[in-house]
């Protein structure tokens, strides 16, 4: 029983990434793809959790910004013939700039306006992807050529998997450290009480925008990793259900828990893959999971782990229901 003492968010994370690192040795191409998709979603959910879970901002942008990142990478690769190593960071920064410009007017106002404005923006970008034929090629999408990882590994699948693994690991590590810094504390302070945060000298708009920008950057980065993985980017991958799937991952994993986001991404990517053929079942499952988690397991998986494991400590976890839990 002593092993229980060593299960912490950090050690569990290291074990998960260790398992994911050896996955290519015994997985076939399909499971390698699922593993790769999981890593992309880990980047996405960590960014979304930073926004909803830690900063308390509810925005519907991450689904469509994921798409903007994927499209930007594809366009930089195909039309500007940039190398993949240059296209990804450019696309991520581009995505961040787009996201911040749109959210800036709403970030000055109360949280509801951000939610409303970003829902509309998500629909708008989806429309642009469908109708701006010269650039986005409309509904048929853009073919993305595979990346050549020749000197490092022989196959694209392995190479791309390890690139995504390294990026996801760095993102998780960076985010954990960011949240330990005074920026992270400021995000949580803004979430808990805007008035109190302001009274101790935290500039609300500045920190909200910062959290938002980091989240958008991650979404763009995830899009850049997603584009060559599928080999094609099409608008329908990035409709409103994309962001709802991400909401489900973050909620089920636990708001305000990076470890929870990783667990949520792993579990729900698998569920999504097994329900791929049944759209209505997918909707019922993901919508139902959001509701059931909020109603019956507030805090999600990470809260349950905290209950069972004495060593599981996450002081910045978000309380979903004020009167239920006390950390």
């Amino acid at each position: 029983m002593t092993i229980i003492k060593f299960i912490t968010p950090r050690s569990l994370g290291l074990v998960v990434f260790g398992v994911l690192a050896v996955l290519p040795a015994f997985a076939n191409n399909y499971w390698l793809f699922v593993g790769n998709l999981t890593l992309v979603y880990i980047v996405l959910t960590v960014g979304l959790n930073l926004l909803i879970g830690y900063s308390g901002l509810l925005a519907f942008m991450n689904g469509i910004l994921f798409g903007v990142g994927a499209y930007a990478t594809a366009i930089f690769r195909v039309d500007f013939s940039l190398s993949y190593g240059l296209a990804i960071p450019l696309a991520a920064v581009f995505t961040m700039v787009i996201g911040v410009i749109v959210a800036l007017p709403a970030l000055r106002l109360s949280g509801l306006y951000l939610a409303l404005a970003t829902v509309a923006f998500a629909q708008f970008i989806l429309w642009v992807l469908l109708h701006w034929d010269q650039v986005t090629r409309g509904p048929s999408g853009i073919q993305v050529p595979p990346v050549n990882y020749a000197p490092l590994t022989d196959t694209f699948e392995n190479g791309h998997y390890y690139l995504t693994l390294v990026v996801a690991f760095i993102i998780v590590w960076l985010t954990v450290n960011l949240l330990r810094s005074h920026y992270g504390r400021a995000f949580v302070a803004v979430r808990e009480s805007e008035v109190a945060a302001e009274s101790i000298g935290i500039d609300l708009t500045r920190y909200k925008t910062l959290a938002y920008a980091v989240s958008a950057l991650y979404a763009g980065l995830a899009g850049g990793l997603f584009a060559p993985l599928l080999g094609i980017v099409v608008p329908e991958s990035f409709d409103l259900s994309q962001v709802i799937v991400q909401f489900a991952m973050v909620t089920v994993g636990g708001l305000g828990s990076i470890a929870g986001s990783v667990i949520g991404a792993i579990g729900l990517v698998w569920l999504q893959e097994s329900l791929r053929a049944f759209k209505e079942l997918q909707e019922v499952a993901f919508g139902g999971m959001i509701l059931l988690t909020i109603l019956f397991f507030p805090g999600g998986v990470s809260a349950m782990l905290k209950k069972w494991l004495p060593s599981w400590r996450e002081p910045l976890r978000r309380r979903l229901l004020d009167h239920h839990e006390h950390d």
Partner: peptide, 22 residues
Amino acid sequence: LMKAPGTTIVLATVGLSYLLKG
């Protein structure tokens, strides 16, 4: 969820909308 913060309720309505759509 009566005493829950606003973002939780919005999240719940989003989940409900997806469930009802399915």
